[in-house]
Amino acid sequence: MSVAACLLLYSFTAAVLAPRLLVRLTHAGVAPQLGVLAWLAAIASVVASWATAAAFLVGELVTDWNQPGRSVVSACLAQLRAVAAGNYGLAVQLGLLALTTLAAAALAVLLGRLGKSLLRARTSTHEHARMARIAGRRVEGLDAVVLDAPQRAAYCVAGRPHTIVVTSAALAALDQRHLDAVLAHERAHLAGRHHLVLAVTRGLAAILPRIKLFTTGAAEVARLLEMCADDAAARQHGARTVLRALLTLSGAAPIPTGALGATGVGVLARAERLAAPPRPARRLRTRLLLGGFAVLIAAGPLLTGGLAASGLSFCGPM
């Protein structure tokens, strides 16, 4: 019981503190790859501690059921029995059974929903890619399909095979160098399997919208992945070319869909860091902090569980 309780306490603390700390460390995009890693480590850490806590609860219950008098729960029950001096032992045990079942069921539902949302994402994304490949035109020497559309847009869709889509308006606006930079950016997304990361983080955020670690995490990871792809394109074609391409595609009149503004903020940060890359000293400091954070939070559930199990933790045997 104490291990499970400590893990839940840990996950609660991590879910509250991690997003605040990480936003501060990653928002400027100084080390985007490490930033993504740190966010994913934090998210995985919380989910893993839930799973471990549920496993421990179930384990405790099973041991307790089979060998009364051995586990912490039994000790607790014995105390309660002594206090209540009635036949409350069974009631408490049944309560514990209900609690454990509830926790395990909640976890199963969560994982089931996540799996479903991943499958849904895969289906609609592959379908979009397939449609784009049929409706899009092929241009000789261009590693993308061209959709006839008045909006300037370029994006990539995972599918079989993966597909990069460029609109005819974007194609007309970009010259060859800038187009190459845009394609390099999209290829970096596909090569890095960013769509899988996005599907998981967005899925979690949609299932548990109240947990800030997941919602903020999904948005920040998306931003950081754009920056990673920018860096990959900049390595090949130069930061200024990527910046020029960003500017060219943003020059069009915004599309009136009512969804404006919410997502565009990331573009400014991307442009700023392409225009003025962070200094080496700052980069090193951010890397060290993020690396340390990632290691610590990845080891978090293990440390908490270990401390609780050995009884050294402040949680103590409960």
Binding site: A135, A158, L198, P254, G264
Partner: peptide, 29 residues
């Protein structure tokens, strides 16, 4: 078909399970 695809791709609210990486998100003026 192109218009339908663009609507799906640009209007984020249309189909939340569609995972795309835009080179550039839509921006305000």
């Amino acid at each position: 078909y192109s218009a339908r695809l663009m609507r799906d791709a640009l209007d984020g609210g249309g189909n939340p399970s569609l995972v795309l990486s835009h080179f550039l998100d839509q921006m305000s003026d």
